[in-house]
Write a protein that binds this DNA or RNA. Structure first.
Length: 565
RNA sequence: UGGGGAGUGGUGUAGGGGUAACACGGCAGAUUCUGGAUCUGCUUUCAGGGGUUCGAAUCCUCUCUCCCCAGCCA
């Protein structure tokens, strides 16, 4: 058992909990829950909530349940409950034996409904959906009471039992709470507690044909599980009076406190199930786990680590105001993690052939390369060097601008862990004039990368020996949107009008150092100077596919950009 | 025009009567066998008006702006 951590960065929710602990509320217990509806895949917004709920439990020596909020059989599927469990586990959280389903409580909900009917606090209403909307009133005008509001307890009991028995068709009746049709809070205008739905539920099958609504089911679920702090997002703020109303009327022992926080928005991406579906169906991405998606599965496939995401969740904080977090912070978090953990490797994404004309044709040397300068414990490896190499196209410029330090005609640079080379000749395509091969000389005295006299070069570039290289495909990703805010679009258009149509660039024929042979999906590397890459699940047999998780910070790219202006 | 929330630098989060802090970003520089990492410095803020006070981001008051709510979705 760990001691509660009161020292970690606090937030308004933890402040409330600390106060409750101080005053001995809830017998000094802390119990939260993460309650997704299994109707879609989790995204990084959910990760914020997961980290919050499980994190609070951990900080205060409490517990956090995982609960499927499965009260709507028409939308929920087992496929989703499995993916949700996988994602939560992957993020590093453990609900132990506390995996719950709202559907497990259906009988309890029913009993409670009976109780409310007997107390005259709930009634069966025969209004159609359209009529009910009409009776509800508007934001500014009060509603009208349903003509069925005055039914006797006996009649209500009879009708409700028959609703359960399946005597009535979908939509013909509802069970409603009897509260106040004139309330300024529309949620309190006799909200529906049960609707008739002759639909198979993924867990209860055809046992039920009436299903409870969120507001009714959620508070009771929390109460049953002994939740102390029921944390949800801002849009439920004006549902809180109803949450409290049900629990007060039912006189339950455990009455959790609902606390609302602002959901996460991330710049240059979308964050709602509806928009994700539009992306998938519109063919903008290949699926829920497309590495450009901010779904947990997408981020995982992209090469993000649970550590980075947890760290991100901590850095963004928790508050009540609407905000848009700069995606640069997420990128910072993954770079921070991978910088410490990812082995370095040399990979040429856009190869340019280089012949070292004064190097023997049949010779191969094994150069020592450091696996991770941030972590000497990760050791070294041998990288083969020979006469014909590949370097990055971007590392050569025939007419280098002033700030360009890399290879150019007549200029000397260092090949990382190998030799200094000087470009003495360029071979061009007759027709296009494009440089297709470089002839260079090397200085044998610089073996390993250092000149004996302390001679300096301005750049070190990576390379791969042509004869020893393995081929791979690299997928480079860019933001999904061309603008930070998905809703900042022209009148009448939606986020699809600001899609970045170049968010995926596929590079084939990349040349990798041979140590990457047989790398397995999920393996993460830093391709030196190019970014962090992760083996994609599309890899098979000898075919290697890499996702670029995130590029390295690139000062040269910035300089070049301002140069172009 | 009803009800519920929220306004602190470019972004996010602290500070809750004593003169605004941390992180990311941006910009410089140092350093470096990754134009990476690291280090240093700079950048810029309390929505507005009035009031209380020796002193207000903080308390009071008025105003403005933004977000959410009219599913038998969650």
């Amino acid at each position: 058992m760990t001691t509660p951590d009161f020292n970690r960065p606090s937030d308004f929710i933890r402040d409330i909990i600390k106060e409750d602990l101080r005053t001995g509320k809830n017998n000094s217990r802390v119990h939260t829950r993460f309650p997704p509806e299994p109707n879609g895949h989790l995204h990084i917004g959910h990760a914020k909530s997961i980290c919050l709920n499980f994190g609070i439990a951990k900080d205060f020596n409490g517990l956090c349940n995982l609960r499927m909020d499965d009260t709507n059989p028409t939308k929920e599927e087992v496929e989703y409950v499995e993916s949700i469990q996988q994602d939560v586990r992957w993020l590093g959280f453990d609900w132990q034996d506390r995996m719950y389903y709202a559907s497990d409580y259906f009988e309890r909900f029913y009993e409670c409904a009976l109780d409310l009917i007997r107390k005259g606090k709930a009634y069966v209403c025969d209004l159609s959906a359209d009529k009910m909307r009409e009776y509800r009133g508007t934001l500014t005008a009060p509603g009208k009471e349903s003509p069925y509001r005055g039914r006797t307890v006996e009649e209500n009991l009879d009708l409700f039992e028959r609703m359960r028995a399946g005597e009535f068709p979908d939509g013909s009746r509802t069970l409603r709470a009897k509260i106040d049709m004139a309330s300024g809070n529309i949620n309190m205008r006799d909200p529906v507690m049960y609707r008739i739905l002759h639909a198979d539920h993924h867990r209860t099958g055809n046992k039920w044909c009436i299903y409870p609504m969120y507001d009714y089911a959620h508070c009771i679920s929390d109460s049953i599980e002994g939740i102390t702090h029921s944390i949800c997002t801002l849009e439920f703020e004006d549902h809180r009076p109803l949450y409290d109303w049900f629990l007060d009327e039912l006189k339950v022992e455990c009455h959790p406190r609902q606390i609302e926080f602002a959901r996460l928005n991330l710049s240059y991406t979308v964050m709602s199930k509806r928009k994700f579906i539009q992306l998938v169906e519109g063919g903008f991405v290949t699926g829920w786990d497309d590495p450009r998606m901010s779904t947990i599965s997408g981020l995982r496939r992209r090469g993000y680590t649970p550590e980075a995401i947890r760290n991100f969740a901590e850095r963004i904080g928790v508050a009540k105001r609407d905000s848009v977090v700069d995606i640069a912070l997420l990128e910072y978090c993954i770079r921070e993690d991978l910088n410490k953990t990812a082995p370095r490797v040399m990979a040429v994404l856009r190869p340019l052939k280089v012949v070292i004309i004064n190097y023997p044709e049949d010779k191969t040397e094994e150069m020592d390369a450091v696996n991770n300068p941030e972590d000497p414990g990760m050791g070294t490896r041998k990288v083969p060097f020979s006469r014909v190499l590949y370097i990055e196209k971007d590392d050569f410029r025939e007419d280098p601008p002033k700030q360009f330090f890399r290879l150019a005609p007549g200029r000397e640079v260092r090949l990382r862990y190998a030799y200094f080379i000087t470009c003495v000749h360029t071979v061009k395509d007759d027709k296009t004039g494009e440089v297709e091969e470089l002839h260079c000389t090397y200085d044998p005295a610089t073996r390993g990368g250092d000149a004996p006299g302390g001679r300096k070069v301005k750049a070190t570039i990576h390379w791969v020996s042509a004869d020893h290289a393995i081929d791979a495909e690299a997928r480079l990703y860019d933001y999904l949107l061309t603008q930070p805010d998905p809703d900042d679009v022209e009148e009448g258009k939606d986020f699809r009008s600001i899609m970045n149509l170049n968010s995926l660039e596929i590079l084939s024929g990349c040349k990798l150092e041979r140590s990457l042979t047989g790398a397995k999906p999920g393996c993460k590397y830093q391709f030196e100077r190019m970014g962090y890459f992760c083996v994609d699940t599309d890899s098979s047999g000898g075919r290697l596919v890499f996702n670029r998780t995130v590029s390295l910070k690139d000062t040269w790219a910035k300089v070049e950009k301002t140069l172009k202006k």
